[in-house]
Structure formats: C-alpha cells, structure tokens
Design a binder for these strands. Structure first.
Lengths: 298, 298
DNA sequence: TTATAGGTATGCATATTTGTATGACTTGGA
DNA sequence: TCCAAGTCATACAAATATGCATACCTATAA
C-alpha cells in the first residue's frame, strides 16, 4: 500500500480548515489554543507545500481562492472524521485527569456550583472543570458540554438524564417594597404588583393564571433575562422576582412575597450527560459527584 | 463553533493509522519517511493524550486493542479524506518543483529511460523523478504512479493516453547459438529452437503460430519474467529472446534471428497519465518531455 | 542451542516548530 | 480626520519534535 498521498503535515490542513471556517488567523489560533503567528505559518507552509494559493489577503481578511474552496470540502471531511475520532477516543478514555465541561444556568452558577466545585477540586485535583454559564440549552451531543444542569427534561435522545429533585420557586421581594403594596388577600389582587420578568413571553403568567393568579402585561414592566440583574432590581425595590427557595431564604435582604398564597411553582432539576457517562471514567466521576452534592443542596 | 474536539495532534492519528495498517512501527516509519523512534513516540503520545491503549505489545508485534479497532475506523476516514485532499491539491498545483513518479517496464527502464531522465534533469532540476520498474500495470488512479509507459492501451477510464508509436519485436540471439541450429527456411521449422520465455502462458506462441510459426512448449524450456536475465541467458547461448529492434540492433553481441522471416510482432507504445495532466504543471511538463523523447527513440 | 534478522523503547544531539514581541496596515467609530 | 482596536507578517528566543545510536527482546533457521 502506498502512503505517498498522506505524507503531508495533517496539522497544516487543520490550520487551513479552522482558519477558513473562522475567517481570520487570529480567531483560528484562539480556537485551537495556538498563537496567530503559528497559524499564519502553518497555512503558509501548506500553501508552499501544495503549490497552491489558498487565501487571498484582502486587507485584514483572508478570502478563499477557488482552489481553497475546493480543498476546503476535503478538509471538512477530514475535520469531521477527526471529530469522530476524538469523540470516540474520549468515550473510551481511562484517564481520570483531563477536562470536563459543565453547562449551567446563572443561578446555579452563582449560588450552587461554587461550593460543589471547590469540594470537587479538593477530591479530584487532576480534573479540570470548565463551566459554561448559559440559560440556553447546550448541545451535549455536539460536545459543547459534557454535563448540564437543567430544569426541564432533556428532549434529545441518546442523552442520559437523572432527576435530582425539585426546587420550589417563590416570589421574593424586599420588606420595604412589599409593605408599600395595597393589601392582597388572594392571588387575583395583584394588579399593583411588579414582577421583574425574564422575557416577553406569557409562559409564566399563563401558568400562574391557571392557578388562580390574575397577572397581565402590566405586572411585567421590567424585563431582563440576566437573572443577577433581576435580583439587584428586586433589591432596589422595583419589584419581586421568581427565585428558588434555597437561594432566596438564605438572602437576608429578601423575604417571600405572599407566603400565604403558597409557592409559585415547582421546577425539576435534571442532571444530563451524553453517552460517555457509560465509558469515560472522568465524566462519570464528575457526574456522580455533582448528583450527590446537588441532591443535598436542594 | 467549538473546535475542542479537533484540538489534538492530527499527525499522531496519521501515525496510528499507518502503523495499524502496516503492522509494525518500523514499516510505518518507512512508509511515512520518518524513523521508527518517531513513530513509536507519536503513537505513544496519542495513547497518553487519549488515555487509551491502542496496541498491545506482543513480542515483536503490535496487536490492536478493542479500543484501537474502534478508533481505526475513524482514522481510516480521516486518512481517506487526507488522500483526497492531497490528490485534489496535487491536481491544482502551480509548483514546477516536486516529484513525479514514472511506472515503466524493465527494458524501458534500462535502455530508454536513462538518457531521457538525464536530459530532463538538466532541463528541469527542480523536478524529482521516482521510477517504479515493473512489468505489471501500475494503478495510476490510486496514484501509485503519475505517468506510465505501456505496451497496451489503458483500460481504466479517466486516464489520458497518447500513442507514441510502435516498436518492432524481433527474435535475437548470438551468432554462435544461431550457427549451431539446423537450417531453417520457414517459420514452421523451429523445433530445435529455444526461446527464453516470459511466462508459462501460450500467448506469444499462439500469436506467432497464427502467423504460420510452429511453436510448442518444447520451444520454451527456459522461462523467466526478469527480462535482463533473459538477455543474459541469451548471451550465454541458451536460446533466443523477443527483443525490441532499437535495443537489439544496438547490442553488438546480438543478431536478429531468422531475419528473412520478418519481425515477430509490433507492439504499440502508449504514454499514460491520470487527470492531473490537465491541471498540474509539473506532471504536464514531464509527460510532454517524455512523449517527445520517446517518439524519437523508437 | 546458537546465530541472525527484525522489532520496540530510550537517551542524547540536532533540527524544527512555536511563542513572544513588534511593526505595518486596515477598519470602524467618534 | 484621528484614534483605538484588530489583523497579518516577521525576527528572535524558547520549547518541542525528530533523527541517530544503542540496548534489549523475540522469532526463525541452521
């Protein structure tokens, strides 16, 4: 078997692929954890070796040549195969050392995760933890993250999910703000109440209205998806927020609003992982650790 | 876009692929033009990075583990894409410097090619020539060679073929050997003649018998596909050989046998190339050069 | 059993690649 | 128009990879 046609530096092809997809050498370098001069030289080396101009240099941009476009298709196939190689390898890894990526929402990141991570780092110093803080679901199958904490059951099949429990959500506000409201004896008397909203959809108000609450758009005059800002606006006395019980009860500046009306809702807590949970020691270790700690925290 | 899963050394995967396919580190190293310690370290580095044992070391052998087998599939895909990348690039190359591989038969290699290559090296010092000497057809599509000289029209489509002319094949022998034969006045009187055969098939004798010759197995008591040995055996007076006119007439120790019976056959000379002839400067240059020189030589 | 050929692993020297620092240039916003 | 930020290319120093040499081991043939 002749291997002549694979005797080039495959890492140069990788450089070409990521540079073409990211659009600049600087971005590609960052993406690969290398430096811009290295990427520049790798692409140039590939051009020299193949005798082809892959990019035209147009001002600050690199523009693919026709030849570049043609070769990019093959480089993509190579990258795709490389990804599958890497994912398959990760799935079989016997190494405890290495990186695990968590995807969590804002509130988990700030109120629940610090203690958990501190303890994990103590017990497993060889494991690097990367945390992606997002209120959007991360694509575990594409390995944007290994493990996610979510408040909804996962919809992607091939994921492994464990329900850890449920968190209770109350409305919280400052004593000052609540004392300035007119008397409220039942859930339908909430016209003067300001709830600091998450988005413009009516999801939350619809759910609560089905429970006998009487909320309208007028109750949601302040809207931000950034939950820490919600919290600060609440502390400024501008309204109440939906907040998990274990977090709200620990904050001395907050009190439950309308406690006699009961909690606003219950949300499940799911810990989700891709299939590597079955085969990758490290991911299994982190998953189990978080499951234990989080079950106790809520 | 996250590139996490392509951030490993692709060249280590290449090392794994070629080692797995070749069976030993030494063979893989040779195939890639590297050294055995380098291959050993690259495979070991991949194993360490991925946390997977890819090969069991069994005596002198490397035996793929189960994990290794699984990953090999992905490595193959990567290698396949790499090959296509390389071939596509080669097809677009604007470089005159570089390597061109020729596939030629024994006699061409020894009698026709040296002068042609010497002249080509003079005119194009940047072009490296690799010559594969084989009497079997090389697979140009798989890039075992770029250009082939053949005495039969190519059957693979997608190849470009140019007929350069025809060579005339005579029987040649030494004067001494021929003088010891009984008188032969026509082609059917050849029972005492020994022809040093190429193989055990009856192809050549069938063709000649159709022309009125009368050859049987007894005429082919010495058989070797190694044409230079045929030539030496002939010079030892053990028989006659089929030999191209331009080569035989130049050798003072040989004379045409039974010249009055005419040549044994005419064989076409084709110069064949894969599709890169259209796009790759270097291959086009070598092809044209050889076409010119060879047309004049026969 | 011995000799030979062929294979892998490892230490050290050398060659190559990568990172740091910097300059030239472009782009977008004030 | 000017300034700040971002981009690419290049020189030099540092880090890493590779080749050479060697030791050790295995398999095979005599």
């Amino acid at each position: 078997m002749t291997w002549t046609s694979v005797k080039f530096d495959w890492n140069h092809t990788r450089a070409f692929l990521v540079t073409a997809e990211e659009g600049t050498l600087s971005a590609a370098a960052k993406a690969l954890g290398l430096t811009q001069p290295t990427l520049s030289r790798q692409v140039a080396a590939l051009e020299a070796e193949m005798g082809i101009t892959l990019f035209e240099r147009v001002g600050q941009r690199l523009v693919l040549t026709e030849s570049g476009v043609e070769l990019l298709e093959h480089a993509r196939l190579m990258g795709n195969a490389a990804m599958h190689f890497s994912l398959a390898a990760s799935g079989q890894s016997q190494k405890i050392e290495g990186s695990v990526t968590l995807s969590v929402g804002e509130l988990d990141a700030i109120f629940r995760l610090p203690k958990i991570i501190a303890k994990l780092r103590q017990e497993e110093p060889g494991i690097d933890i990367e945390v992606i803080v997002t209120n959007e679901p991360s694509d575990l199958k594409r390995r944007e993250a290994d493990i996610a904490i979510r408040s909804f059951r996962p919809t992607q099949n091939d994921l492994i999910a464990k329900k850890l429990g449920e968190e209770t959500i109350w409305l919280y506000g400052t004593e000052d703000y609540l004392s300035r409201l007119p008397p409220i004896s039942k859930a339908s008397d909430l016209t003067q109440l300001q709830i600091i909203g998450f988005d413009r959809s009516n999801n939350v108000s619809d759910i609560l209205n089905q429970q006998g609450w009487n909320l309208s758009k007028q109750n949601f005059r302040l809207i931000t998806s950034f939950q820490m800002l919600q919290l600060q606006l609440c502390k400024e006395g501008l309204g109440v927020i939906f907040f998990p019980e274990d977090m709200g009860d620990k904050d001395p500046s907050l009190v439950r609003a309308f406690e006699h009306l009961g909690p606003a809702m219950q949300l499940p807590i799911w810990l989700v992982c891709h299939q590597e949970l079955r085969t990758n020691l490290r991911v299994r270790r982190v998953f189990d650790f978080i499951a234990d700690e989080l079950s106790q925290a809520v």
